[in-house]
Design a binder for these strands. Structure first.
Lengths: 191, 191
DNA sequence: AGGATATCAGACAGATCTGTCCAAAATGGC
DNA sequence: GCCATTTTGGACAGATCTGTCTGATATCCT
């Protein structure tokens, strides 16, 4: 019953997740990652096509975990308005974790070329997130669901952005109150 | 009356502003910049202590122009509430310009080390911006000026962030409406 | 046990990047 | 016109980064 060491691939992904997120995909070189992972350089290129592939896998993992976090906060709720507010709870949880450093997709794509793996990952995440807000706003039967979704997205982005720019997690609480204000004042016909 | 060519220093700053903003301070090397500026490499190190110094000067220029832009939109207005709304007009103008690529400070600092010139420039700008919102909210005699400023900052950041992440300038108009909602509903005693 | 798969250790190549240096030439102010 | 300042062109150094290659070894599945 010896605890088997994780595979080189898993250790690489774990090291990449830590270093890429904390210091940036452009700043951290593969030598740093293989050292942190305790893995031979050859194993990196055996498991991944190159650094870009590792970056893409890192971002895919972040995407998956973010969706899982939001799902965890929304499941069990029945009112779509509560679900929309729970999205901010998910953000608050993320921002409160030690080492929070902003949105991984925003950071990675900030200085990336169009069409790069970072830009593609950003678009994937943003597409899903926008659809989520629109779907919930529609379920909530707002007269203008896309308008409500747009407003919530601005508020959400402001919280995530401000939490990093000012190292100020309190922005999320401010954002959730704003979201509540929007959700309570926006017209709903089919109440 | 031959139009004198700008100095090497000015051409370097102009090239840096264009390339650093469009492609990122980490992505663009000094060779790209001296090529674009049409300047000898020696002239770069004659006029600047190094790349970091050039980056700092680039960001200082962005900071100065952003303050000037906001000043231009707020001057002439007497009501501090109008001035707060005009801050969003300034953002709308910036976002509408061709080649808008998000907040230069947010982008440059996204993958920069703490204490780097990018991080320092970010803090300088954010400090000034936060003070501006708080000062105007105080002048407007809101009961909770810092609360109003916090909410406006979240909204402002969301617009700037979303405009880049989704290549969606319309986020600014959404944000200005949200700001108006906040400014009209927040309690003011000394009206 | 045995064969496919995975990992190791590290040297090496090739590209790129920042920064230095130098002697000559252009420029600008007084 | 003179002298200090600025600019030029380019070679060069030194560091770093991604990716390749090789041959031995370890691990996993059946």
């Amino acid at each position: 019953m010896t605890a088997t060491r994780p595979s080189a691939r898993d250790r690489l992904l774990q090291a990449a997740d830590r270093l890429f997120y904390a210091e940036g995909v452009h700043t951290v070189g593969i030598d740093r990652i293989i050292e942190e992972a305790g893995v031979a350089k050859g194993s990196l290129f055996y498991n991944f096509a190159g650094k870009d592939d590792l970056v893409a896998s890192y971002l895919a993992g972040r995407d998956e975990r973010r969706r899982a976090r939001i799902a965890r906060h929304t499941e069990g709720l029945t009112d779509p308005v509560d679900k929309l507010l729970a999205v901010f709870d998910a953000l608050q949880e993320a921002v409160g974790e030690p080492g929070y450093n902003g949105c991984a997709f925003a950071n990675a794509s900030a200085e990336a070329a169009p069409g790069s793996v970072e830009a593609v990952a950003l678009r994937t995440y943003r597409g899903w997130f926008g659809d989520l807000l629109l779907r919930l706003a529609t379920e909530a039967a707002y007269d203008d669901p896309s308008g409500v979704a747009d407003r919530l997205r601005v508020i959400y982005d402001g919280a995530a952005s401000g939490a990093r720019l000012d190292a100020q997690p309190a922005a999320v609480a401010v954002a959730k109150e704003l979201a509540r204000l929007v959700l309570e004042t926006a017209p709903r016909s089919a109440a």
